[in-house]
Design a binder for these strands. Sequence first.
DNA 1: CGGTCAAATTGACTTTTGTCAATGGTCGTG
DNA 2: CACGACCATTGACAAAAGTCAATTTGACCG
Lengths: 321, 321
Amino acid sequence: MAIRPADQIVHKAAWLYYAHGLRQDQVAQQLNISRASVAMYLRKARETGIVNISTSTQLFTDDVTAREIEDAFGLDAVWIAPHGDHVDPAAEVPVLAASVFLQLVGKGDKIGVAWGQTVYAIADVMAYADLQDVTVVQLCGNLGAPFAYRPDQCTMEIARRLNAKGLNFYAPLVLSTEGLAKDLRSEPVIREQLAGISECDLALYSIGTVDAGSHVVKCGALTSDEMDALRREGAAGVVAGQIIDNKGALLDCSYNRRCISADLASLRAIPKRLVVVQEENKFEPLLAGLAGGLCTHLVINAAMARRLLDHAKAANRRKAS
Amino acid sequence: MAIRPADQIVHKAAWLYYAHGLRQDQVAQQLNISRASVAMYLRKARETGIVNISTSTQLFTDDVTAREIEDAFGLDAVWIAPHGDHVDPAAEVPVLAASVFLQLVGKGDKIGVAWGQTVYAIADVMAYADLQDVTVVQLCGNLGAPFAYRPDQCTMEIARRLNAKGLNFYAPLVLSTEGLAKDLRSEPVIREQLAGISECDLALYSIGTVDAGSHVVKCGALTSDEMDALRREGAAGVVAGQIIDNKGALLDCSYNRRCISADLASLRAIPKRLVVVQEENKFEPLLAGLAGGLCTHLVINAAMARRLLDHAKAANRRKAS
DNA sequence: CGGTCAAATTGACTTTTGTCAATGGTCGTG
DNA sequence: CACGACCATTGACAAAAGTCAATTTGACCG
């Protein structure tokens, strides 16, 4: 993206202030404008990624528990948000995940983004950056739910924050018949988008539950009863709108066959798969995702970390005896 | 580098302030310390690279002249510092170069650094960062000059700023006999260091003049008269302590044979070669360096940019007629 | 032209941040 | 165990940054 003339002054102010370390009044004098304008330009510069402020997330990986989880589950990196010794414990995981995400993004990357409350919460607290050559693609079809965390919203908001190209997915997440889903999947536009997913450098998603509180239910893609039935058939979690069993494999069911979404093999082909889990009740879904190799980088809170580790230790003990 | 316990609190304060956007008094309350301490911790966090503030350098590449120079000389990227419409025009090039340099450094990189006033000026204004897995190596031997911009100083200062490992070069830049230089070059420690240079991902150097004002003369490696003689033999510039002719090739002379430094082929093997030139009188040396393919990324001021472009256009005209 | 409106800019005020001398605590030493 | 040197911490003040209503600018239109 070429710099628009109006941005020149913003850029210049940011440069004098942040790179040269001048004070706002000195910048104002330099540019022959009021200090109030400088303050405004600087805010704009921060909000457009002309200046980047990032804080190291070392503190959250540099922890025995995190290392143990990495070893136990064979992950590349784990970050643990400490439990709320401060204002808003619920905000900690998304804030951390947003930082981690920005740290994992590289120049020229293609990034796949799924959807959900967690993903949207991350997008919402993400710092602005100026990564013009980055592309953000939607990992799964859309649904017309009246929620802010719809797939297209998640993708677009993240693309906006990064100043990146957002590539939306113009198909419903789930169709009424398997035949229609198959036909739609082979439409050139859709097929290309699905095929391109495995070329991503980084993916971001959470893992959903398979109960009445699941987003798939709340958005009307499945009824509560249908979900119950699926759970009896082995449904353990939701990834990019699709239902997986406790081994992390795609569940063999009509719903999945009616879904338009990234297939799990494509997801696994993405070198960095950042999974972020917040809610207490996503323990089993997360285990399923981990078992299926759907995660390489993980952001969780301390309570979840504890449970994961206890689970791994118990499993080891069972194996040993 | 593991986080020391004393850094924990600094990290936490930085996290609450920069990532969560709390105010200093809120952070102080959270951590049960005074706001003054928070302010101090935050300064420390900035100075140790726990938080990174960087400003885009787009403005300086996004310019017709820069593009024209890229095309004319076949460079990967060119940044042009505008001439002093502000406080300290002399500071502009180093500040810009430092920003560009940080932008070019990647995770796990090995970086070669030469020496000189310019390089030291860059180190001196460089922001702090926390790139634990980066190595900074010295590109050429040392000299005992009483100047701050000695090769080892340049290397160490940059390593310190980046929180990276600094690898110094424990040999003199120039010896009294060719034989001794040859022997020293084949010492295992030295040989390894020289051999490792071509594995660098990024190099940073300026290009020196070949007159009485040259650093090689000022530091006593050559007398003014010897330098005059070399200039008559075709010396056109100095790169990493070695003398090049106007084609950018190593000049065939005793001095060069007595030098312990990165050979030019090794330098050319480094994918990103950032050359920074400040002083007016380095035009011819820079041309020599460009001719020798010693530069892929260039930071100069507007006046130098003008001269380069005029030169290239004149050369084209000569070719055409 | 003169009028209208939205957007940019500013002066004046408030809030937040930076600074530093004074304080208190810690550790090594005699 | 008393002493003093040293460093982290703090309270109080000064400096800088943020905010917002009021004003100016400039673009558009009848």
